[in-house]
C-alpha cells in the first residue's frame, strides 16, 4: 500500500468520528475508484480521499464543515429553519415521512448548513449542502437559507463560500422548489452589484436546479476532482440520445475543458485555494 500523502495544511480540526452514512462502514473499506481495500482510519485522516487513487469520497455537510472551517469557528444561523409540506406530497411514501427519516439520519432540519466561519483566519459566510439529506435537494428551506446566507454576506461585506452537493430541485415541493432557483439567483445579482465575492465549490454530485442557479454563478468556481457536474443527469441524457456517454463526461475535468469552471482543486487544497482567492479579491 502506498504511503499516505501528508496533508498540505496542518491546522485541520479533528475529523468527525463515528458512523457516517455517506461513506461505507467498517474498519476496512473498498475504494469505489480503484477497488483497493483501505484502512478506514487512514482514509478518514486523508479527508476521505483514497490514498491510492485520489478518489474523493462523498462527505456529509457536517464533515465538510469540519474539513473546511478553522477548528471551532463555525457558528450556524437558521439551524431551526425546517421544511413543511406545502403540497401535502405523497408518492410511495409521504414527503413528511421522508423529511423525518432524513432528519433522524442526519440530525439536521434540512439539506444545508449555513453560518459564519473562518478559513485560515479569514472570516466568511459558509454554506455546505448535505447530499445525505434527500439527495441534497433544494426545497424552500435550502433556497431560503442560501438566500439569507448571501444577504448576510452582503450586509456584513463578507465573502460567501457555498459548497454544493445536490441532485437538484426537490420534487416534493414542485414549483416552490423551482422558484428557489430564481430567488437565489436574484440574491446573487444584488450581492454582485455590491461587489461581493462568491466562491462556488462544486462537489460530487452537483446537478439540476442547483447547478442551473447559484452554483454556476460563482465569481470563482472551484470543483473537486472527478465530481459529477451537470444540468441533466447522465441517465436522463442516455435515455434521450439512446447511446452511452463518453468516459469522463460531466466530470469536473470535462467542465474545465469546456470552460465552465475556473479550477479543479483536490480536497486537501481547498482551504488554501479559497484563502488565496479571498486575498486576491481583497475581501
Amino acid at each position: 500500500m502506498a504511503q499516505v500523502p501528508s496533508r498540505s495544511w496542518t491546522d485541520t480540526p479533528e475529523l468527525a468520528p463515528k458512523g457516517k452514512k455517506a461513506v461505507p462502514e467498517g474498519v476496512w473499506i473498498r475504494c469505489p475508484g480503484c477497488t483497493a481495500i483501505l484502512f478506514r482510519k487512514q482514509v478518514e485522516n486523508n479527508l476521505w480521499v483514497c490514498p491510492e487513487c485520489q478518489h474523493h469520497f462523498r462527505v456529509s455537510g457536517e464533515r465538510r464543515l469540519q474539513q473546511l472551517a478553522d477548528p471551532e469557528s463555525f457558528e450556524p444561523f437558521n439551524e431551526q429553519m425546517a421544511p413543511v409540506d406545502p403540497l401535502r406530497f405523497v408518492d410511495l411514501k409521504p414527503y413528511t415521512k421522508r423529511i423525518l427519516d432524513a432528519q433522524k439520519r442526519t440530525g439536521q432540519n434540512d439539506g444545508v448548513q449555513t453560518g459564519t466561519a473562518f478559513i485560515k483566519g479569514r472570516k466568511i459566510i459558509l454554506a455546505c449542502m448535505d447530499f445525505d439529506f434527500l439527495g441534497g435537494s433544494m426545497g424552500s428551506v435550502v433556497g431560503e437559507k442560501i438566500t439569507q446566507a448571501i444577504l448576510v454576506a452582503a450586509e456584513r461585506d463578507l465573502p460567501v463560500v457555498i459548497v454544493s452537493s445536490s441532485g437538484g430541485a426537490r420534487m416534493m415541493e414542485s414549483v416552490f422548489s423551482l422558484m428557489q432557483m430564481a430567488k437565489t439567483a436574484a440574491a446573487l445579482a444584488r450581492f454582485d452589484e455590491q461587489g461581493g465575492l462568491f466562491i462556488s465549490v462544486l462537489t460530487d454530485p452537483t446537478t439540476g436546479g442547483v447547478t442551473a442557479s447559484f452554483a454556476m454563478l460563482g465569481d470563482v468556481i472551484l470543483a473537486e476532482p472527478r465530481a459529477l457536474i451537470g444540468f441533466a443527469g447522465p441517465r436522463v441524457i442516455e435515455q434521450t440520445i439512446r447511446e452511452s456517454l463518453p468516459e469522463g463526461f460531466q466530470r469536473a475535468e470535462f467542465l474545465l475543458d469546456c470552460g465552465f469552471i475556473d479550477r479543479v482543486v483536490p480536497r486537501s487544497e481547498l482551504r488554501s485555494e479559497i484563502s488565496r482567492i479571498i486575498d486576491y479579491a481583497g475581501k
Binding site: 439551524e79 431551526q80 429553519m81 439520519r105 424552500s140 431560503e144 430567488k183 436574484a186
Partner: peptide
Amino acid sequence: RKIGAVAWQEPQSSA
C-alpha cells in the same frame, strides 16, 4: 424573495 414555505423547530439534537 417571499417564495417558499418553511417552519421553525429544533434540529434532532440526539442524532
